[in-house]
Design a binder for these strands. Structure first.
Length: 811
RNA sequence: GCCCAGAUGGCGGAAUUGGUAGACGCAACAGACUCAAAAUCUGUCGUUCGCAAGGAUGUGCAGGUUCGAUUCCUGUUCUGGGCACCA
C-alpha cells in the first residue's frame, strides 16, 4: 500500500477541524498541562524553516502529554502590534491593520499545513481592541499601584495616600500633605507609581523617529537598522522594574531556565553589593568654592577593603561637583575637557573606550582613615548614571584605574604586597593587606566587612546595593501600538475609568511623526484635544511591543471573557505555563517584563502565582545555509595594481573549485584559456601570469540550487533574467557553489518556505526532519537535502506496518 | 577581559545511576531491477594491520580515580553564545 501522505494528511486535518478535536475545555477532571510557544510577529515574509522548529517540538510534546491523560492547553496567536507594519505603512500608505490581517492569514495557512494541534478558538492578537482593552486595564493597575518597600510587594496607591493623609512620611507631615495642592500631591505620588511618567533622558533615534529601550540599542546604534541614537529629554512613561530587581533575581531560583539564560538575566539586572562613602574635600583658597552647598564627595565601591590603596578619585564629566570643586588654575583645562566630552557621540564614546582621557580638577579629597590628600580627576570612563557617578580609584587592584594612573603618571600605592607586580592590576580578594592601617594583616575577603562596619561606625558611609538595570521606558512615539488610557490636564495624568476601555486606536491618514518628536497620534487634533485649545488632552504616545506580550499567556486561558482579563478560576486551573518554547533573543526583554507583570498581578491578588513560566526551552537558530556563486570582477596587474581590466560586465560565473581551489593558488592560465574559449581574444594568454583575478561572491537563491550545484537554466531566469547572457566556466559540467551559514533572511535568498516542503514530502516528513536535525536547543544549519532520507524512512515504516497488518489479516 | 555552554566517523548526530561507542539519517562505494537513466530495493562504510579468521587503536589534548570512563575529577586547547569602562 502506497504511502499517500497528501491524502492521509488532508483527511486528518479536515477531520480534526470538523470534529474540533483540539478544542480544549477549562472544565476537566484531568490534570492540566500548559504548553506555549512564543507567539510570532506576523511579518510580511511569512514563515521560514527556522520558525516551526520550536512549534513542532511543543506540538509533539502537547500530543504526548494529551495521550498521557492530561488536559493540554496549546494555543497560538499573534504579536501583531509592532514597528515593521508601521514602517511598511509609511512606505506604502496601507493601513497596518490591513497588512497585519493579510500577514496573519498567510501565517495561519502555513501553520495549518504543518498539522499543529492548536485550539484556534483561543487565538488572540495583541492589536485586537478586545485584547488590548485588557493591556490598557493592566497598565492602569500598574499606574494605580506602588511598591511597598516594607512588604516588598505592589500595593494599591490608595494605601499610600491613606498613609500620607494620616501619618505623612519622613519628608512631610500629614498636615503638610493635606495642605498640598492636588497637583503637588500627584507629583509626589508619581514618584511611587509602578507605571509612572517623568522627564527623562531617552534614547532618541532620528532615523526611526522613535525612542528606543536600552535593549533595542547595540553599541550605541539602533538594533534595527543600525541608526545613530542620541540623548533627548522628553516626558516618557516608565515601568518601575527596578523595584522588582531583587524578586526577579530570587525568582530565577524557582524556575527551570537554562543556566545561560538565568545568567543573562542576572547580568542585565546587575546587582552589586558595596558601600557608599563620603570624603571631605580640602577647603582651598578658591573664591568660587565659597558658599558651595556640599563639601563632601560621595563614591560607591564594592571594595571598601581597598580604601588604603586609593590614589585618586574620578568623577563622571557630568557630575554636579565638577564645576564646584575645580580650582582657578585648572578651570581652563577642565572646560576644554568637558567641551571635548560633549562633542563625542555615545557611539564614539563606546567605540573608543580604550582611549584613556581625563583631566585633573585641582581639588583634593581627604582619606578619612589616614588623612592622605587624594587628587580628584574627571574622566569619561566613569559613568554618571551608575552608583554616585564618582569612584575611588585603586590602581593596584583595578585594571582601568591602573591604566589611568600609568597614563597620567599618578603614583601607585601597593596594598597587596607580592600580589601586585607593577605591570598590571590584580583584582584578587585573596591577598593579605599591607600599608592598610587598621586593616593590615587581614585577608581582603574578610576585610570588606570590617571596613564597612568601621565606615558605618564613623558615620561616613553605609552599605549600599546597586543595580545596573534601569526602569523600563514604556512610551513609543509611534502609531501601531496600544494607546495609553491617560488624559493630561494641567500637567496631571488622569487615568480613564475601566468602563471607558478599550481606548481604540483612531484612524490616521499619515504615519509620519507629530510635532516635537511626538507620535503620529499628535496630528489628530480632534482626538487629542478634549477641550477646545487642548487644556485637557490625551497622551499621544503608544505602548511598546512588549506590552501585549507581557501578559498574553493569561488571556489564552480565558480568551472570550468580557468582564475581566482572565477569570481567576481559569488562571487558578491552568496556572503557570509548564513549558515555554522560544528563542534566546527574548532573554532580557520579553521574559523580564512578563515576569515583572506576573509578579505585580500576583501582588495585587489578581492571579495566584508569581512566575509565569515554569520551564523554558530555547530553541536554537536554524541558520540558512547560503549559497554563493563566484563572479569574475577584474583582472589586476600583479606589479603595481595600476593596470586593471574590468570583467564584471561579461558576467563570467566560475565553479567554486576553479576559482578557489582549496589546496593551491588558482590556475590563471587555465581560467584565462576557459574565458577565451567563451569570448575569443578577450585576454592575452602570454602575459596572463602577470595578472591576478579578483572575484566577487553573489548570494544565490537556495531554491534554484541542488545541494552545491547550481541549476544554470533557472539561474538565467532568476531576478527577471538579469543573468540571461551569463557565461559559465564549468567543472565536471557543473557550477559548484561556495557554502556559508547565515541567518535566515530574505535578502540572502536562503529562506525555504515550509509549505513547499510539506507539499512535496508531507507534514510528517517535514516535522520529523526538523527534529532529526539535532537537539532543539542547538543552532544548526539548514540543509534541505537530508529530508529525502527521512521521507524514505517513513515510507519504509508505512510499508512494513501495512505488510505486517495484511499478513495478520487485519487489513 | 569576564560569565555560560559545548567538543564523538567524510557530515548532522545517538548512547551517561560508570558496563558491547558510533543508533537513525546524509554523503560515498558496490550489487539487484532497467536497453539506459531516474526512482526503488539490498549490502559495505571510524582508523589501522591482515587474503581471511582475527588483532591493535579510537569520543579535542594531557593526566587522575576505577576491574571498567564518551560518562566522574584536575589541568589545558579550541569552538559557539552572552556581557563588557557598571566601580
Amino acid at each position: 500500500m502506497e504511502y499517500d501522505f497528501r491524502k492521509i494528511e488532508q483527511h486528518w486535518q479536515e477531520a480534526w477541524k470538523k470534529n474540533g478535536s483540539y478544542k480544549v475545555s477549562n472544565e476537566s477532571a484531568k490534570p492540566k498541562y500548559y504548553v506555549l510557544d512564543m507567539f510570532p510577529y506576523p511579518s510580511g515574509a511569512g514563515l521560514h524553516v527556522g520558525h516551526p522548529l520550536g512549534y513542532i517540538a511543543s506540538d509533539i510534546y502537547s500530543r504526548y502529554k494529551r495521550l498521557k491523560g492530561f488536559n493540554v492547553l496549546h494555543p497560538m496567536g499573534f504579536d501583531s502590534f509592532g514597528l515593521p507594519a508601521e514602517q511598511y505603512a509609511l512606505e506604502t500608505g496601507q493601513h497596518p491593520a490591513a497588512t497585519t490581517e493579510k500577514n496573519i492569514a498567510t501565517f495561519k495557512a502555513q501553520l495549518d499545513k504543518i498539522g499543529f494541534c492548536y485550539d484556534w478558538d483561543r487565538e488572540l492578537r495583541t492589536s485586537d481592541p478586545q485584547f488590548y482593552k485588557w493591556t490598557q486595564w493592566i497598565f492602569l493597575q500598574l499606574f494605580n499601584s506602588y511598591f511597598c518597600n516594607t512588604q516588598k510587594k505592589a500595593r494599591p496607591i490608595a494605601d499610600l495616600v491613606k498613609k500620607y493623609e494620616t501619618k505623612g512620611n519622613p519628608h512631610f507631615t500629614a498636615e503638610q500633605w493635606n495642605a498640598f495642592t492636588k497637583k503637588e500631591q500627584e507629583e509626589i505620588l508619581m514618584n511611587r507609581r509602578l507605571a509612572f511618567s517623568k522627564y527623562g533622558e531617552v534614547n532618541w533615534c532620528e532615523a526611526l523617529g522613535t525612542v528606543l529601550a536600552n535593549d533595542e540599542i547595540v553599541n550605541g546604534v539602533s538594533e534595527r537598522g543600525g541608526h545613530p541614537v542620541e540623548k533627548k529629554k522628553m516626558r516618557q512613561w516608565y515601568l518601575r522594574i527596578t523595584a522588582y530587581a531583587d524578586r526577579l533575581l530570587e525568582g530565577l531560583e524557582t524556575v527551570e531556565f537554562s543556566e545561560s539564560m538565568k545568567e543573562m538575566q542576572r547580568n542585565w539586572i546587575g546587582k552589586s553589593e558595596g558601600a557608599e562613602m563620603e570624603f571631605d574635600l580640602i577647603p582651598g583658597p578658591s573664591p568660587e568654592r565659597e558658599g558651595s552647598r556640599s563639601s563632601k564627595l560621595r563614591v560607591y565601591t564594592t571594595r571598601p577593603d581597598t580604601i588604603f590603596g586609593v590614589d585618586f578619585m574620578v568623577l563622571a564629566p557630568e557630575h554636579e561637583l565638577v564645576t564646584v570643586i575645580t580650582t582657578t588654575g585648572q578651570k581652563a583645562e577642565v572646560e576644554k575637557y568637558l567641551h571635548y566630552v560633549k562633542s563625542r557621540s555615545e557611539r564614539e564614546r563606546l567605540a573608543e573606550a580604550k582611549i584613556i582621557t581625563g583631566c585633573f580638577t585641582g581639588a583634593y579629597a581627604i582619606n578619612p582613615f589616614d588623612g592622605r590628600e587624594i587628587p580628584i580627576w574627571i574622566a569619561e570612563y566613569v559613568l554618571a548614571g551608575y552608583g554616585t557617578g564618582a569612584i575611588m580609584a585603586v590602581p593596584c587592584g583595578d585594571q582601568r584605574d591602573f591604566a589611568f594612573a600609568k597614563h597620567f603618571d599618578i603614583p601607585i600605592t601597593n596594598i597587596i604586597g607580592s600580589h601586585y607586580n607593577g605591570e598590571e592590576a590584580n583584582p584578587t580578594k585573596d591577598a593579605i593587606l599591607e600599608n592598610s592601617g587598621f586593616l593590615n594583616g587581614l585577608l581582603m575577603k574578610d576585610a570588606i566587612v570590617v571596613a564597612i562596619n568601621k565606615i558605618e561606625e564613623l558615620g561616613i558611609g553605609k552599605r549600599k546595593v546597586n543595580y545596573r538595570m534601569r526602569d523600563a521606558g514604556f512610551s513609543r512615539q509611534r502609531y501601531w501600538g496600544e494607546p495609553f488610557p491617560i488624559i493630561w490636564s494641567d500637567g496631571v495624568a488622569i487615568p480613564l475609568d475601566a468602563e471607558e476601555l478599550p481606548l481604540e486606536l483612531p484612524h490616521v491618514d499619515t504615519y509620519g511623526p507629530g510635532p516635537e518628536g511626538e507620535g503620529p497620534l499628535a496630528n489628530i487634533t480632534e482626538w487629542v484635544e478634549l477641550t477646545p485649545g487642548g487644556e485637557v488632552k490625551r497622551e499621544t504616545s503608544t505602548m511598546p511591543g512588549y506590552a501585549g506580550s507581557s501578559w498574553y499567556f493569561l488571556r489564552y486561558m480565558d480568551p472570550e471573557n468580557e468582564t475581566t482579563f482572565c477569570d481567576r478560576k481559569a488562571s487558578d486551573y491552568w496556572n503557570q505555563v509548564d513549558l515555554y518554547i522560544g528563542g534566546t533573543e527574548h532573554a532580557v526583554g520579553h521574559l523580564l517584563y512578563s515576569r515583572m507583570w506576573t509578579k505585580v498581578l500576583f501582588d495585587l491578588g489578581l492571579i495566584g502565582f508569581d512566575e509565569p513560566f515554569k520551564k523554558l526551552l530555547n530553541q536554537g537558530m536554524i541558520q540558512g545555509s547560503s549559497r554563493f556563486v563566484y563572479r569574475l570582477d577584474e583582472l589586476v596587474s600583479n606589479f603595481d595594481g595600476s593596470d586593471k581590466i574590468q570583467l564584471g560586465e561579461y558576467n563570467f560565473f566560475i565553479s567554486c573549485n576553479i576559482a578557489m581551489p582549496t589546496d593551491s593558488d588558482f590556475d590563471r592560465l587555465r581560467i584565462a584559456t576557459l574565458i577565451n574559449e567563451k569570448t575569443p581574444g578577450l585576454l592575452n594568454i602570454q602575459t596572463i601570469n602577470n595578472y591576478g583575478f579578483s572575484f566577487s561572491t553573489l548570494h544565490v537563491d537556495v531554491n534554484i540550487v541542488d545541494g552545491v550545484e547550481l541549476n544554470i537554466e533557472e539561474f538565467k531566469k532568476w531576478k527577471s533574467s538579469e543573468f540571461a547572457n551569463a557565461e559559465f566556466i564549468l567543472e565536471n559540467g557543473q557550477i559548484y557553489l561556495w557554502c556559508g551559514n547565515r541567518e535566515n533572511e530574505q535578502a540572502k535568498f536562503n529562506t525555504v518556505d515550509p509549505s513547499v516542503l510539506c507539499e512535496k514530502y508531507g507534514a510528517d516528513t517535514f516535522r520529523m526532519y526538523e527534529m532529526f536535525l539535532g537537539p532543539v536547543e542547538a543552532s544548526k544549519p539548514w540543509d534541505t537535502k537530508g529530508i529525502e532520507g527521512v521521507h524514505r524512512f517513513l515510507r519504509k515504516l508505512w510499508r512494513l506496518f501495512n505488510e505486517a497488518s495484511a499478513k495478520a489479516g487485519k487489513i
